[in-house]
């Protein structure tokens, strides 16, 4: 079965999912923090759109609610919180050049291919559609992981973390028609609390190393050099 033979609805969903994957690439390579936050907001909005399409098709009230929740949380609230934090930390104009931008993008492409290869066993029967969408969401998750590896800026890492959550949500909505409502609410609550805590940590990190470059968080290693052990008293009051 080729893609063109799929029902129009599923074709629409695949199109939106492809855009989600595209925003993942944008997030990965976008050097300016504010623009990256905007890209993340767009990703959230696209996922809300996709949920809306599914809700429309299945006439399920629970998915309507879930689309609204995604829009509020992923496209508005979290980007707004990040925006505010970035302004309060006065890093809005910061940009962080990737060390090897081409390599990072190539690695992301490789991850997309890997995701498709990983879901090959699911090729059975009429799963063409599902396979595509699972592969795309897996790719979004893995690119989020890659982003956390290659970016050193704490805010960019949080964006990577949140886009992993987006990938998971994409998988849940498009393959299964959404998880039960109370589970979805619980997950959303956890994500929100995590975001608040990330905000707290931005300030704690800046206070302790005077920067948000997490590569400089390198005090804890297996063997401390001799000089350092003298000054390190750990938790002793």
């Amino acid at each position: 079965m080729t893609l063109a033979e799929l029902p129009p609805l599923e074709q629409w969903m695949l199109l939106v999912a492809a855009f989600v994957l595209f925003t993942s690439f944008v997030l990965l390579a976008q050097a300016r923090l504010v623009s990256a936050i905007h890209a993340f907001a767009w990703q959230g909005a696209l996922i809300a759109t996709l949920t809306l399409i599914v809700a429309q098709a299945e006439q399920s009230s629970h998915l309507w609610f879930s689309a609204l929740l995604t829009l509020a949380l992923k496209a508005l609230l979290i980007p707004w919180m990040l925006h505010r934090l970035v302004r309060r930390l006065q890093i809005a104009r910061d940009s962080e050049a990737l060390r090897w931008p081409t390599l990072a993008i190539m690695a992301a492409v490789a991850l997309v291919i890997f995701s498709y290869w990983l879901v090959l066993p699911m090729v059975a029967q009429e799963l063409t559609f599902t396979r595509n969408i699972v592969a795309i969401s897996l790719a979004v998750v893995l690119i989020g992981l890659l982003m956390m590896v290659v970016r050193q800026q704490a805010v960019a890492q949080v964006l990577g973390f949140m886009s992993i959550e987006n990938g998971l949500f994409l998988a849940a909505v498009s393959t299964t028609g959404g998880m039960p409502l109370f589970v979805e609410l619980g997950v959303a609550f956890d994500v929100l609390v995590a975001m608040v805590l990330f905000g707290v940590f931005f300030f704690q990190i800046r206070e302790s190393i005077d920067s948000l470059d997490v590569d400089r968080l390198n005090r804890l290693t297996e063997t401390q050099p001799e000089g350092q052990t003298e000054t390190r008293t750990g938790e002793t009051p």
Binding site: I205, S208, N218
Partner: peptide, 11 residues
């Protein structure tokens, strides 16, 4: 709130 503690918590 020592630098080490913040680093450990972030990790």
């Amino acid at each position: 709130r020592t630098p080490e503690a913040v680093e450990a918590a972030w990790k």
